[in-house]
């Protein structure tokens, strides 16, 4: 098990390094000039040359890459061309909102996916009325779902808000739900939940189907397996067979898919945040794209990429823990 942990951690570190290399190379070839982020467009050629020297842009690329890594480790991801602030400071402001949204959506996706799989595999009566619509919704582009959600729940029914997080500023953790509980502010909590519902549900639908489908086929094959037949032949209660034999042996593929889907959610969140004016990293990215603000784009890619790599490593470790054949 220790060997496996070490190996998996090692490969995650390598992946992060590769990701930084990719981002670094792209940054090097990108058209935007990082010097202008510091000095503005009207700087004198002498000032620009001095700043280039100061930023190390005249060094050979490997040296620059080394500096880039060192800076990144120190929390320095360069200056945003658009906001004229350090990218790290921007990320620090915008990341919590995104993490909160994605986390809630991810939990929703797991729940919806499990419901999809279990209702299908166990042939729950009426399950098709849940699965069918979910399947159709999952084929729609997220921005269309967002528009539909706003028209229905905001404009027509007037039960849910259509924009923002419901609070002006967040507390110490940066997560509305946690801060409001810590501060004992019930109205803020409710407002937070209300604002989260639509974007989180919309973000969760497509991943829930991907997770649900995989989970269902793995449930189906486990249910048909010889050892489940053995468990039944022992005269165990169906719920025991399910809990002790079926679920554990079916989770693996679902977990892997959930890890992959987390990556897609961090990409999908960009669109959803834009529609819902969610003050998160996705909105920040969406605003950076039209202005070709490459340092900002690179920073977002790096941070979300690392979250994705770490999450997938965690999934692998969880799977190894669950399967004795893997940690021999």
């Amino acid at each position: 098990m220790t060997r496996f942990l070490l190996r998996r951690t090692g490969s995650a570190v390598v992946l992060v390094l590769v990701l930084t290399a990719v981002v670094f190379v792209l940054q090097a070839v990108s058209p935007g000039d990082p010097v202008k982020a510091y000095l503005g467009n009207n700087a004198s050629p002498a000032a620009i040359a001095a700043q280039r020297q100061a930023l190390g842009l005249n060094d050979p690329l490997p040296v620059q890459y080394f500096h880039y890594i060192v800076h990144a480790l120190q929390g320095n991801l360069g200056m945003s061309l658009r906001t004229r602030r350090p990218v790290m400071a921007d990320l620090h402001d915008f990341l919590p909102a995104t993490v909160e949204l994605v986390a809630v959506a991810f939990v929703l996706a797991l729940l919806l996916g499990s419901l999809y799989a279990v209702s299908g595999s166990l042939r729950w009566p009426g399950g098709a009325f849940f699965r069918g619509p979910l399947l159709v919704l999952a084929t729609a582009p997220p921005f269309l779902l967002a528009l539909g959600g706003i028209i229905l729940f905001y404009a027509q029914l007037q039960v849910l808000p259509a924009a923002g997080r419901g609070v002006d500023s967040t507390g110490p953790s940066g997560f509305v739900l946690i801060d409001s509980i810590l501060g004992g502010d019930a109205t803020e909590f409710v407002a937070g939940v209300q604002h989260l519902v639509l974007p989180a549900v919309i973000l969760s639908i497509a991943p829930s189907i991907s997770i649900g489908r995989i989970l269902r086929s793995s449930l189906d094959s486990t249910l048909a397996s010889d050892y489940v037949r053995t468990a039944r032949s022992k005269g165990l209660r169906p719920i025991v067979v399910l809990g002790k034999h079926v679920v554990r042996n079916s989770l693996g593929p679902g977990l892997s898919m959930a890890g992959l889907q987390l990556g897609f959610m961090f990409a999908g969140v960009v669109v959803v945040e834009q529609v819902f004016s969610w003050p998160g990293i996705g909105n920040y990215l969406a605003a950076s794209i039209p202005t070709s603000d490459f340092p900002a784009i690179a920073g977002v890619t790096l941070v979300l990429g690392i979250i994705y790599i770490v999450a997938n490593a965690l999934v692998d470790v969880l799977q190894a823990l669950a399967d004795p054949r893997l940690n021999a």
Binding site: D226, T230, G235, H245, R248
Partner: peptide, 21 residues
């Protein structure tokens, strides 16, 4: 009946036992 009266042995003991228990 399965619990108290019946016992069963299947063909392939590898697949008939739960691999993770």
């Amino acid at each position: 009946v399965r619990r108290h009266e019946l016992g069963v042995i299947f063909q392939d003991p590898m697949t008939s036992l739960n691999p993770t228990m």
